[in-house]
Design a protein around this nucleic acid. Structure first.
Lengths: 345, 345
DNA sequence: CTGAAAGCGCTAACAC
DNA sequence: GTGTTAGCGCTTTCAG
């Protein structure tokens, strides 16, 4: 049998006050006389009373809930972000609804509905497609939205991200400076703006160094290890195989290294590889993955702070104009791209 | 200004029916006449109506929310678990509240309060301490609880875990069979039952092979890389340094390898290392971490299925007796413990 | 400072 | 089949 929860009335009865006074003790302690307050507080403890968030939400229209929509929790780039956001939310007394779409647009839509139903106060979206309108759907329902390092082309939404184009440029440029001219790019999902922007950087670096872009060296890894394995096997079998690979994220870079090793190629001697993200394992001595560091903790902090600002200013008469915050990246040169150990800011 | 949400009454008005009929269309479509239903459904779509989970929860006492309490999202052993649980929850139309305690008991308590307030239907706890009574607190409030691979000594709660003792035994035994007699054990948090059970396995393996336990070889890594770095530096400086290390989880094993490498020791030639969990990176060709595999996906699936069973049988007159499900583990022998490549079930 | 009344949006029981 | 009446537990007026 379901337990009957203790309500505000039970507390009021036992404390011998009206239930409004109990409500005041919980929400507005300062206006209640000290003596009454102490007694009510004691009864609350005795009865182990917790105010029902549902009932409260019904009346205040705030659920004290934020949500995070991500494409794939198993990408090691995300956990640190989750940690930071969850922590800041807890500080504010908010809980975190985690939505993992598995990169499935249908799932994304399902989650948008569920988030609307749960009436979350705000959402951080870290998986928008280039043509997504998720943000609009939520905003229409009065839910605050911050886009996280991914954004649709047409948008007028708050956005926090890193300099993906600059990072792509830096990585590619470094490989060129190391003498590589035949550099492949492994892209992420076709609709991910992050991957698109990193590719733009790659193209600009080649162009700046008067290296023509060989479109056949740009392959789709789709953020999935098996796919990367397939396309990089193809790539490395070629007569004119690339001497270096820039992968749109670290997970794909690691998968590419795995494939290279299995094909009998040594990294970095036969093949230089640079990733993007700087996931925690990248700096492990056994791995030493060269990569573009995108300080995801700061990014997460910026996003969460912005979101809470929006939530707290919800009653503001006119909306805050869309914020756009782009954080810098830094090249982390380690073992997998050969050459000396140095970092470029 | 906060948007006024469209309510069931708005829909009823526009569709020209009573609001109860709208409620029926949403919850009990079959009892509404097809024609009426179609029209109502159309209005729902036009108005983009979403039933308020808060209002519904107030009356049904179910929030369609489950929660997962974990100690540290950044441990790569967890994301797969989160993925599985989130997926199964979504299938049932439930959302997932993620609580990350950072191994802080205060945070754990804070989260218990928040979970009570949000009136989650159920909770999977993957961070109980040996002396925790979290499960009791929630159960008293009518919230279903499943313990995940960690459990207090005194408990009468549903539990899903792996054979930690057996895994510890298998790992240690393997090292002994490889000729090691001086085997260190790096423990996790002092109150984690997982680490405790793995240690029991370690002790039994030594005992079965007539190797006396050297207590100074059992050190506390506390699941934190810096701490592991500190204690393993100590360990490896010793005159009689161990020739092998069994670490209570993979993250600590990787940190120990890092330390060994930095001390100029080669793994596995100078030092054999086995971990526990089989996190995804362990099988990467650059890492090749020997470890005890604990199929966390199956485990997560068992836990989630059990939890939903409990939630769905909430009205059952007598409680289901505490379930205890222990899944087997398997030894994954790779590079870091030396020797041949073979796996033991 | 405290109490009484109203109502948030919905479902559950019962009428019609 | 459909409409009516309560009431879930709380906050918000507004009186005392």
């Amino acid at each position: 049998m379901r337990k009957k929860n203790v309500t505000i009335k039970d507390v009021a009865l036992k404390a011998g006050v009206s239930f409004k006074t109990v409500s005041n003790v919980v929400n507005n302690p300062s206006i209640v006389k000290l003596f009454t307050r102490k007694r009510v507080l004691q009864v609350i403890r005795d009865l182990d009373y917790r105010p029902s968030a549902a009932a409260r939400a019904l009346v205040t229209h705030s659920r004290r809930l934020i949500s995070l929509i991500i494409s794939d929790v198993t990408n090691p780039a995300y956990p640190e972000m989750i940690e930071v956001i969850a922590w800041l939310a807890r500080q504010k007394g908010f809980m975190l609804l985690l939505c993992n779409t598995g990169r499935d647009p249908d799932e994304e839509n399902n989650y948008l509905d569920l988030i609307s139903e749960q009436q979350a106060d705000g959402v951080i979206i870290a998986c928008s497609n280039i043509d997504s309108n998720s943000a609009d759907i939520l905003t229409k329902r009065g839910i605050k939205v911050v886009l996280f390092n991914r954004r649709p082309f047409k948008y007028s939404v708050h956005y926090v991200g890193v300099d993906n184009e600059g990072g792509g440029y830096a990585a590619t440029n470094h490989l060129i400076k190391m003498g590589h001219r035949h550099i492949a790019f492994i892209r992420g999902a076709i609709k991910a703006s992050t991957s698109f922007e990193r590719e733009q950087g790659y193209r600009r670096a080649l162009s700046d160094n008067s290296i023509p872009v060989d479109e056949s060296l740009i392959v789709l890894g789709d953020y999935r290890a098996e796919e990367v394995s397939r396309v990089s096997t193809e790539l490395l079998k070629r007569e004119d195989r690339p001497s270096a690979i820039f992968a749109a994220n670290d997970v794909m870079a690691l998968a590419a290294i795995d494939t290279a090793n299995q094909s009998g190629l040594r990294v970095p001697e036969d093949l230089a590889i640079i990733g993007f993200d700087d996931i925690p394992i990248a700096s492990n001595s056994m791995v030493g993955l060269s990569t573009v560091r995108s300080n995801i903790r700061s990014l997460a902090e910026e996003a969460a702070k912005l979101l809470f600002e929006l939530i707290e200013n919800a009653e503001h008469p006119y909306p805050i104009p869309p914020v756009e915050k782009i954080l810098p990246v830094s090249l982390q040169i380690r073992r997998t791209c050969g050459g000396s150990i140095y970092n470029i800011e």
